[in-house]
Computed example of a mutant assay.
Amino acid sequence: MRVLRTTSTGTSRLHLPTRSMGIAVVCLPAGTQPTALAAQATATLAARGLATHGVLPHFDTRTRRTSKLLDRWNGLTSGGPIVLLDLHRMRTRAVAGAAAEWLLWQQVVAGTRPAQPFWAFTDRHAADPHRYPLATAQGDYLSQPRVLAMAAHNAIPGQPVPLPTSALEAFQAGYGTYVNLAWLVAVPGDGLAPQPGGWLTTRSQRLADLLDYLTAANAHLAQLPRDAHLVAVASPA
């Protein structure tokens, strides 16, 4: 499961979790023409003050009605009417991947103590930046044995299943929580632009805030008519 993206903090191998936008899902009304999906999704995000880097294949689909879809590629599409998107398969596949990922994580961190997530250190820095500089916060976070175990696993060249430290709190919440998060994040991604307006995303890296966002995003998706459109757009931080 990839809940939040990670960006480098200047080290060659270790990565600290920081918020960044990756996949933004835009909800568009049923009457939208397939040829206008990309432009309208980009305009929707621009109206909310969000930059974009074009559409990207995110949704599973098994339909042959390619004229109704946006950029169908290898079983994936960048968007189209919900009725032609296989959201169930997306969630099922995400859960299966997360289950295997969590079991691997459990092996990698075996014998280590629970670690504090990165936001706990940045909160301490924010409370007293002079006595607790950001560099110290970063060092204290990275020096925790459990984080070191994950970083050592990720440092292996060509690692097929990296374990993002940004998901530390979710990993530690247990198997059930981790796979449920994978189900919840599979469709809406990092941010959702509902209809008729607004913007949903997590307020912070805290697991509780992430769950608040995913609960609201999936509730909105569940009430959309089947002929409404979803479009996935790449959006930077």
Rank of each mutant, 00 (worst) to 15 (best):
F59A: 06
R131M: 09
R13A: 12
V25I: 07
N74I: 00
P57D: 04
F121Y: 13
R89S: 15
H58K: 00
Y175I: 00
T11V: 00
L200Y: 12
P81S: 03
P157Y: 04
L163E: 05
A30K: 07
A24E: 04
A43V: 00
A94L: 07
R62T: 12
R89M: 12
A170C: 08
V185D: 09
H125D: 05
A219F: 06
D140Y: 05
G22P: 02
A39V: 08
T7W: 01
A120T: 12
S67Q: 11
D123R: 13
R19I: 00
A39L: 09
P81K: 01
N74S: 11
T42G: 14
R62G: 15
W119I: 02
G198W: 08
A173P: 11
V161I: 14
S166R: 02
H130R: 13
G111L: 03
A208F: 02
T7H: 04
A47S: 14
L104Q: 10
T35A: 14
L14P: 01
A51K: 06
R113P: 14
A186F: 04
I156T: 15
V83R: 15
L163R: 09
L37Y: 11
I156H: 13
A237R: 09
Q195M: 12
H58E: 01
L221A: 01
I23Y: 10
P188F: 03
M90C: 10
D60I: 00
P145K: 08
L192F: 03
E101R: 10
D60P: 12
G198A: 09
S8F: 11
L230G: 06
D71E: 13
H53G: 14
L168I: 01
H58C: 07
P133M: 04
L69N: 00
W183H: 12
L230P: 07
T61N: 01
M150S: 04
G139Q: 15
A100D: 10
T42E: 15
G174T: 03
A110C: 11
L224V: 05
L184Q: 15
P114M: 02
L103P: 04
R2E: 09
G79V: 03
A36M: 14
V233G: 07
I82V: 10
F59I: 01
G191K: 08
G189T: 00
A152K: 13
V233F: 09
P225K: 06
L148S: 09
P34E: 03
V147T: 02
Q107Y: 04
A96I: 09
G97R: 11
A186R: 01
